[in-house]
Write a protein that binds this DNA or RNA. Structure first.
Lengths: 209, 209, 209, 209
DNA sequence: TATGAATGAGTGTTCATTCAT
DNA sequence: GATGAATGAACACTCATTCAT
């Protein structure tokens, strides 16, 4: 494996474990088994490494939204479902990066925010368009978009932000399919409950057991 | 205002804004308008200050659970509702502390975790007992407790973890009653949907508009 | 016991154990069970406490020299013997202070030196006068005074400077009479050998066993 | 000259002048004309620098003992004489290090002591073996080994511990050959007097003038 | 006399980064 | 590309001391 990749992997692992400020470039270099100076060489410093990692995550995240959004023949309901499923899937394949990202982005770091804003505005555009279309087409109820988005984000990020709590207090295993599937079902159930017109509300997920 | 209190307030503000590792004791001292040495004098160092702040938050949080739990004549459903409302209320009165706490606790800091574990285990006990009682009494459906807890935490914490996003991207105002009330209603709606027996599921909150 | 005395005792103990620079006023105050501010109050600071302690030691030390020097009817030989015995006796009654003093005085501290010089010059005067008188009167051989003084100081101070070494490596007990007496005899034996005219050289102490 | 060496030299000079605790790393760095961080870089901190310097001194010291000890054809008397002369010679070539070392070792620093003990035990072994052999072979009188060692150490170290006193009070010059030679002769004279069988006691050194 | 609160200066150490090789 | 040496700035913390009470 090449130096650049080794640095990225080590950085994601350590940023996740100890936070960005709590991680030193020397730790990253040691974990990656490369010389410290390479971090400045490849990413022009620690900040650059963070931006690289964050940007990569966001690129992929937006790609998911975009691809579902531009897919033909999908109703708003189906589109939303595809997005939620793919996001959950992508996140579970990049657990460390996801967890780090969701924690660190809430920091008021000016530099990170400049990168973030672009992507978050695009994210908002996609979701808002889908929701509005769904309401116009009568598929969705009239919901408050901000409230819906905050709830959705909470639902999607919670298993990652509480990864340690889940394992050490609840004794559940977020990495195993059972928990992930069960959680995904509940999210979809909430989605149906919160958005869909009453006529089409399915039985709550919990009631299916 | 006395020195100790000034330090605590400045610390909560800065920890929230820049994270624990991203905040220096000198910044805290400057913000609090006191001498740096006082932080070590009163809290035996930066780490001690963090522990003090975190412990205080948890004490209050557990007190809410405990008080609802020991209140006579409440059904599981009512108990849960009281708890959720009081937590949301307490959180909105301590926005900065709440936001900082929910972000920072996910870090693998050994020292913090020792404090955390005690409280989280107690928190689990209260919720688990309520849920189990509700199921036994036929008020609640049979739900997976871990999955429920992760969802609940996501719901309760999301407005704080995304405070900046809400303000700067969604242009909503989490500090104003409208958003808070609306959000609280949706959380209660989700709670009803996820937990209550189908027969008693109310119309979705969104449908009421 | 009053505050001042408690501070002095604690200071001597700690200065001896950890050195002057290695001891903090807070440690002294804690050991003495008094408030820190009292040290500044009674001795105008740490430096003042040191000077007080050192001065006291030197006062007593010079008093021994003076008293033997002004005693009537003593030959130089007898005078020297009285002095050596009394110094050894005084030192063994103030082990910690002695040990600390002999170590710390070699430091090039300007402030301490000002105090020291006065006393050391007087010390030199007494010894030099005795030695010269002894030589003139034919009791002593013609010795180099500086060389003699350096040797004498080495002999007198060695058990204190190597207190720990004696106990932990040689497994001897400098505090017990046996070692002290034996050591005193050897010092006197060396004194006789180094100073006295050949005709009056006694059998070496060691040969008496 | 390279950075590491420059730091060592500056440290020895300053440790000798102001003591270990009285010297700051910044002073060392300034004296050595290097950046402060280099001290941590090369010696992992101030304590490490001390250990490095002390260890080096002890290594050389033990080497002297060992080399005389393993030299063929030397009687105990000759062996002791060789050792004493070489130690005095080595010390006079490393005056600052010697002086600092003899002063600082008497401090009860735990870390330093761990290093010391090993070497001091070996030192004891060499001297004890020589003395015992000398007694068995009838060359030496029966002396108390601990008392002898304490006297010997006093004799060997005194010129260094009182360097300043010698210069500023006695107006002698310990660095010049005259004083050093004269002092060495007296030490050897004491050695002969204290150890050798009466039949072979030479005239006291002082009597030769 | 005696004290707890508070301070400014200075402590050893660690930081991300640079640069010649 | 990659490295070890070196740096200046910043870090948390401790120091002796002061002062109102």
């Amino acid at each position: 494996m090449n130096t650049k990749k080794k640095i990225i992997d080590a950085a994601i692992m350590l940023f996740n474990t100890k936070g960005y400020d709590g991680t030193t470039v020397r730790e990253i270099a040691k974990e990656a088994n490369v010389n410290v100076a390479n971090i400045s060489y490849y990413f022009s410093g620690k900040q650059g490494l963070l931006e690289y990692v964050v940007t990569n995550f966001l690129e992929e995240y937006i790609r998911i939204l975009e691809s579902a959004f531009t897919q033909d023949g999908l109703s708003p309901k189906e589109m939303l479902l595809v997005i939620v499923r793919q996001i959950l899937h992508y996140q579970s394949n990049h657990r460390q990066l996801t967890r780090f990202f969701y924690r660190e982005i809430s920091l008021d770091s000016v530099l990170i925010r400049e990168i973030m804003t672009t992507y978050l505005v695009r994210e908002k555009y996609y979701f808002q368009t889908i929701i509005h279309k769904g309401i116009q087409q009568g598929e969705f109820q009239k919901v408050s978009f901000p409230v819906f988005m905050v709830q959705l984000k909470g639902m999607l990020q919670s298993p990652y932000l509480h990864a340690q709590y889940i394992a050490e207090v609840l004794y559940a295993f977020p990495t195993e399919p059972y928990f992930a599937d069960r959680y995904a079902k509940e999210v979809e159930s909430w989605l149906a409950h919160a958005l869909y017109k009453p006529s089409i509300v399915p039985m709550p997920a919990a009631a299916q057991f």
